[in-house]
């Protein structure tokens, strides 16, 4: 006891434990994100019976933490403004994010892409343009008038990845990027939960419609979880086209679509 009372203040003091964690903030961030995803997986299984994918819960917790961080620090970078957790900003910054997104393309085979066929390609292109169009219109309706913000929010309506990638390419504020992530998250959760209920109405009972569904929806986690809850056999077909969606969205968003929006606004 005597020993404990001796070293505890030193350990918690400004010059030891806190400084140690601050110095290793990227590692602290890795641990924290791992803990968040562990909790998300548990919540996904226990509370939703696996219906809502852990990734969606994890992103929601991340946004909630960013809110708390923003309130407590008054800063603009969510949890990353807490000096102990500055590593969150590094881990979730555009450098690592873009690297990880590019890496996801590695699983894609060229012959799979051609096997997707015409209907897959049409559904992909249509899905991306419709999402950008509706997201952009909603952004305009809510008072956004600059092409950059409209494109970014439209990109968020595509997926919560296309949003921030487009947003950082177009140099928009963190607030607009957060909005695009939130819009993508709403989409992803809706696709997960709604799909089994509407499957009958939209004829989602064969590989071909699953393939089209994946291309139109695009959110990989949403499509995979939604199809799994509908008919597990359909998952690979939907997931296959959905994996192309993010890449295509990241390619078209900050280029062709931005220029179209720019010419209209």
């Amino acid at each position: 006891m005597i020993v404990l009372s001796n070293w505890l203040p030193t350990l918690l003091g400004k010059h030891s434990l806190v400084v140690l964690l601050e110095k290793n903030s990227l590692i602290t961030a890795m641990f924290l994100v791992g803990a968040i995803l562990l909790v998300s997986s548990l919540m996904s299984r226990k509370l939703t019976g696996g219906r809502i994918h852990p990734s969606a819960i994890g992103i929601f917790i991340g946004l909630a933490f960013a809110y708390v961080g923003g309130i407590t620090t008054g800063g603009e970078h969510g949890l990353a403004d807490v000096s102990l957790l500055a590593g969150i900003g590094v881990l979730g910054g555009s450098m690592f994010r873009d690297l990880a997104i590019v890496a996801t393309a590695f699983g894609v085979r060229l012959q799979e892409f051609t096997a997707t066929g015409l209907s897959g390609i049409i559904s992909l292109v249509l899905g991306i343009f419709v999402s950008f169009l509706i997201g952009g219109l909603v952004a305009y309706g809510f008072g956004y008038r600059d092409a950059e913000s409209i494109t970014t929010i439209g990109a968020g309506a595509a997926t919560y990845i296309v949003g921030p990638v487009t947003g950082s390419a177009l140099d928009v504020s963190s607030e607009v990027i957060a909005l695009s992530v939130a819009a993508g998250l709403v989409k992803s959760i809706l696709v997960m939960t709604l799909t089994p209920f509407v499957a009958k109405w939209i004829g989602l009972d064969n590989p071909r419609s699953a393939l089209i569904f994946g291309g139109l929806m695009g959110t990989t986690s949403g499509v995979a979880a939604g199809l799994a809850a509908t008919d597990a056999k359909l998952v690979p077909y939907g997931a296959m086209t959905a994996t192309f969606y993010t890449g295509l969205g990241c390619l078209l968003g900050p280029s062709l679509i931005y220029m179209i929006v720019q010419s209209i606004v």
Binding site: V33, L37, G78, A80, G92
Partner: peptide, 8 residues
């Protein structure tokens, strides 16, 4: 995990 960190 990186997307979670980005959201945060």
């Amino acid at each position: 995990p990186i997307v979670v960190a980005m959201a945060a």
